[in-house]
């Protein structure tokens, strides 16, 4: 039997997954930032048409989307850790966690709209 003592609904899920997610998303974002810096360095876009051209490539859109998914996931794990440290009442913590999740999902939809319109 797995002991459930002291475990609460807004806890950390007590596993390796979130710890690992935080690191994998961090490495993915770092790779994208380097890629983005190189692309901007090479094409040195000064007018809007050039910026649109950079994000016109499908691979750039997909890479940017992966970056933003990593960003939202990373932000979720990080902000949840902060909430678990400072917000003690379960109801308030759960409400704030839901607010964070909903806002991150809205940001993702917004990102898709920006990249593919």
């Amino acid at each position: 039997m797995v002991k459930q003592n002291g475990r609460i609904v807004t806890g950390a899920h007590y596993g390796l997954k979130d710890w690992l997610v935080q690191r994998v998303t961090a490495v993915l974002m770092t790779a994208y930032i380097i890629l983005f810096a190189v692309v901007v360095w090479i094409s040195s876009p000064l007018d809007q048409a050039k910026w649109v051209a950079i994000f016109g490539h499908q691979w750039m859109r997909i890479a940017s989307f992966l970056f933003l998914v990593s960003l939202m996931w990373h932000a979720w794990v990080g902000v949840r850790n902060v909430l678990m440290d400072y917000i003690k009442p379960v109801s308030v913590r759960l409400a704030l966690q839901i607010l964070v999740i909903v806002s991150l999902l809205v940001y993702l939809v917004w990102a898709v709209e920006i990249l593919w319109s």
């Binding site: 007018d47 809007q48 910026w51 649109v52 994000f55 960003l71 939202m72 932000a75 990080g78 902000v79 902060v82 964070v100 806002s103 991150l104 940001y107 917004w110 990102a111 920006i114």
Partner: peptide, 29 residues
């Protein structure tokens, strides 16, 4: 920790807002 929280808010919406202005149209640019 503090920079992480600030990057989450208002960082992410500001980043997306900037990206939108950059790509939407010549006027927004």
């Amino acid at each position: 920790r503090i920079s992480g929280v600030l990057l989450f808010f208002p960082g992410i919406p500001l980043l997306l807002y900037g990206l939108q202005m950059l790509l939407e149209s010549a006027d927004s640019f």
